[in-house]
């Protein structure tokens, strides 16, 4: 279609899947020029924080084919790490980032090693149970975790001496983090490691027979998703200034899974689309929270039954089908979407 995109090196083609996302993010970063309302900015910040976690989930679910119902718990580990570090040691935002990423990764490993041993559908139930357990432990943690009321965070977020707590600045920072998350997840997807994960997704036994250590890579993918979640948790804790256990129980995890599935877990644009759609759809349709949840639930069911790859992938496919009516040529896309129906069903 576009002549410039034709020199079809695999790197070039891979880059093509990332560029639209970055272009959209640049547009999103320009939004403050329109002087949007504070409410809009807050919503967008929450959406962006979710999107960062969703990029981790997309590596786990979209690439490796493992569904976790405990992703919000990993976000929670990051958020509580940030809050406790800030309270006990006065450690601020930037140092909390690597610490929380590490904490969430370690927690993911602790959960992942036993959970992935049981395999199959039981894994999903295990992650769900671990998520609930974490919420119970946090609730019963006494003063250390602030029990059911949770923890407060004080202290501004600064960058090179500039106070980032202002909504617009925090917004821009979150957009930058989203871009970083998108690039990181893109890099993972297009690396040999990503290919290994997809091999496991498509056929575990075949992958094992090729010498791939399936168990270790699955846990690895889970840990990678934990890193994204931990960073998202730090951003969330410092944005809200207050965190409590219910934010990280299993139902928030369901909503995260819902977002990534509505957007499409295998596309690099999927998490971004899912996070934004779920955050802003109720605003656009003017729904109250109860109605919007009903709509989400119904959307999730419809997406799974009708467009198992998510809305974006569904739209892209419909578009391609329209194009394919004209001269039909097979184009091999090394990006992560799968166009063959047999793959799509998985």
């Amino acid at each position: 279609m576009i002549a410039g995109a034709q020199p079809n090196g695999p790197a070039n083609a891979a880059l093509r899947s990332l560029l639209p996302v970055l272009a959209v993010l640049v547009l999103i970063a320009l939004v403050p020029l329109l002087s949007p309302s504070n409410r809009f900015l807050s919503l967008a910040i929450s959406a962006g924080i979710n999107v960062i976690a969703l990029y981790g989930l997309s590596v786990l679910f979209g690439q490796t084919g493992i569904l976790s119902m405990g992703h919000a718990a990993l976000v929670g580990v990051g958020a509580y790490t940030a809050a406790i570090l800030s309270r006990d040691y006065g450690i601020g935002f930037w140092l909390a980032l690597p610490a929380a990423a590490l904490a969430s990764a370690v927690f993911a490993m602790i959960v992942g090693i036993p959970s992935l041993r049981v395999g199959g559908h039981h894994f999903v139930i295990m992650t769900f149970a671990f998520g609930q357990l974490l919420a119970i432990v946090l609730t019963n943690g006494g003063d250390y975790t602030g029990a059911a009321t949770g923890l407060d965070l004080t202290g501004p977020v600064t960058l090179f001496g500039a106070d980032m707590s202002d909504l617009t600045r925090y917004y821009l920072m979150v957009v930058a983090f989203v871009a970083a998350a998108a690039v990181a997840s893109w890099a993972i997807i297009n690396s040999p490691y990503g290919r290994t994960l997809r091999a496991i997704r498509e056929n575990e036994r075949l992958a094992a027979s090729l010498g791939i250590n399936v168990g270790r890579h699955k846990i690895g993918a889970f840990v990678v998703s934990g890193v994204f979640a931990g960073i998202s948790g730090v951003l969330l804790a410092h944005f809200l200034g207050h965190i409590s256990p219910t934010q990280f129980a299993s139902f928030p995890s369901i909503y995260l899974a819902l977002m990534v599935m509505i957007g499409g877990a295998r596309l690099i644009s999927g998490p971004l689309a899912g996070g934004i759609l779920v955050a802003f759809l109720p605003e656009v349709l003017n729904l109250d929270p109860v109605q919007s949840r009903i709509v989400y639930g119904a959307c999730l069911i419809a997406v799974i039954l009708l467009l198992p790859e998510g809305l974006i992938a569904g739209a892209v496919q419909a578009f391609r089908r329209l194009l394919a009516r004209k001269p039909k040529q097979e184009r091999e896309d090394p990006d992560t979407t799968c166009t063959t129906p047999s793959e799509a069903r998985r």
Binding site: M69, V124, L258, Q291, R293, G297, I301, P308
Partner: peptide, 22 residues
């Protein structure tokens, strides 16, 4: 695809709870 059934049931949880709330 039991996993799809599981995901669908999660959507159903959200719908049923909030229909009752509504």
């Amino acid at each position: 695809r039991p996993t799809n059934g599981f995901i669908v049931s999660l959507g159903l949880i959200v719908v049923l709870q909030h229909v009752v709330v509504l």
